[in-house]
């Protein structure tokens, strides 16, 4: 059962990787990286059970925290170009256009 689960998780990781590589907009890539981090966490838990050592689940939990905080930091950088939040008087309406023309 864990084997089948790992297979599905690996397929999902591949799909997220495809979206991160191709995704035309910034937000596609952010969601892809976030999904990839979540799938890494699930894969780590499944690996722990596959190798009969579920003690490493703590590490997976800490990965979840890092993934969450990292995604918030990336979103703030995309919107405000800094971690400090909106600049004084500038408001938050200056988000970059989501389109980035690249291959």
């Amino acid at each position: 059962m864990f084997t089948v689960g790992s297979l599905f998780v690996l397929v999902t990781m591949a799909l997220a990787l495809v979206r991160a590589v191709r995704g035309p907009s910034v937000y596609d890539r952010i969601v892809a990286v976030n999904l990839f981090g979540t799938m890494t966490v699930v894969l780590l838990v499944l690996l722990g059970f596959l190798t009969d050592r579920p003690e490493f689940e703590d590490i997976a939990l800490l990965y979840v925290l890092i993934n969450f905080a990292g995604t918030i930091a990336v979103m703030k950088f995309v919107k405000y170009s800094s971690l400090a939040g909106p600049p004084d008087g500038g408001g938050g309406r200056g988000a970059p256009s989501g389109r980035e023309g690249d291959a």
């Binding site: 990787l17 991160a20 590589v21 995704g23 910034v26 890539r29 952010i30 892809a32 990286v33 990839f36 981090g37 890494t40 894969l43 780590l44 690996l47 990965y63 990292g70 990336v74 980035e100 690249d102 291959a103």
Partner: peptide, 19 residues
Amino acid sequence: RNLYAVVMLSGIFSLLSAS
């Protein structure tokens, strides 16, 4: 060539190497 995408992919790369 889009450096923003490269930064995002480097995050994925280090997640993979962590696994």
